[in-house]
Design a binder for these strands. Sequence first.
DNA 1: CTATGGCACGGATT
DNA 2: AATCCGTGCCATAG
Length: 477
Amino acid sequence: MLRQTFRTSIRPMTTAHLAQTMTLLALSNQELQQKIESELASNPALELSEEIRCPNCHRILPARGVCPICGTPKNISSEEPIVFISPRSDFSPVSDRVGNHEEMPDHDWISVNESLPEYVLKQIATELAVEDRALAAHILNSLDEDGLLRVSSIEIARYHFVPVERVHQVIRQIQRADPLGVGSPSPQEALLVQLEILSENHPVPYKSKEAITEGMELLSRYAYAELGRLLKISAAEAENIANFISENLNPYPGRSHWGESASPSEMAQVYYDADIIINRLNSFPHTPLIVEIIAPYAGSLRVNPLFREALLNAPSDKSEHWQSDLESASLLIKCLQQRNQALVRLMQRLVILQRNFILEGDASLIPITRAQLAIELDVHESTISRAVAGKAVQLPNRRIIPLSKLFDRSLHIRTALLQIIENEASPLSDTQIAEILEKQGFSVARRTVAKYRAIEGVLPARMRRPQCTTNKELTRG
DNA sequence: CTATGGCACGGATT
DNA sequence: AATCCGTGCCATAG
């Protein structure tokens, strides 16, 4: 199960080797891509080869082909995840690559190269009145790359000679389609739509709606204290709202995700692309998970053979230079493979451990520490830390979360806590909640309950009375 | 007097 | 070595 021998470690690893692998490991695919591109530009020994090799087993592939060995899932029924490295370049739907298994339901496979308009149109096609089709098509084709509708609805209405309200109706339908909030005229409205839909099934932090409607500008500046004053809540709650929004909502529906936890001092890194994509093969309960590790240029990078030849009869003044170019090129390639292989091993294990979380959501998250995993995989802790840092993973439900969320120590307790509060008849005090949690097997101190409440943005018992704070849509039906 | 939030300490994690 | 997290103690609000 654990194929721990690196097939690439033919030569002993030098310290430079190791160091560079570590550096590469810490990069997200976006950064990696830049790194490789700059390397390609500056190092003549490095080139993109025509023949593409399977990034997993390094066999040479037929043009645009699928590796016959690695591309075919071996054990469909097992719960072992299928982890593979995927070069970003051509984004054919995974289904094409993973063999051709007849019974694969279409809707589970959202091909990434399908255009956004098409993708949305497919979803709303059935509920869309026929006469609204042209309208919908027009709207969808006017989306900008962020998935927002930057042309005014009046313009569209005039063009089609229909009342503006009808345009709005169609927009509303579109907004509820999969990249939630797509077709909104502004990031703000996109957030509102997402929040509203999310709140139908999940508790959302108190006053997050107000934060968006009234404090959008403050939100984007991370001005938590100010935001708190505006909404008459504490700065911590304000910050929590901001975190909630950045973790669960996306002001640019056309992109995959917005920033992660946003503290102003830290580099507020923004995830638009996942580094790792997890899908399920089908909707059967015991389906294996498909884990796709995005590795830019994987399999198509190599040392230029012509350059190698040229080195043999290089002019003496250049030969040293060239030699070092060549070495650094092959080092880079080797390190890249190791990086990717390390990621494969990491995900292989991680996905098994967190399978339930991936499929079922927050409540099923098992608290794992990086250190534990490091021991299991027999690597240094820092290796895991680097590999996890700054990466984003897309779950089967198309949410993109930071990879570090899979190492959250208290998420499952927090969701249990949210459940309790959601189902409470009358507001429970922290002490009572602590007792209930104790019975459920989570022994936490009363003080900690308070902390979790704060994190989740739930107000203290006393303040929860008049209106349900966690979701205003109490009247669900 | 009870329920909570703040501060700070110690141990775990990174 | 730096940071994060759970918790205890204490002040404060209701």
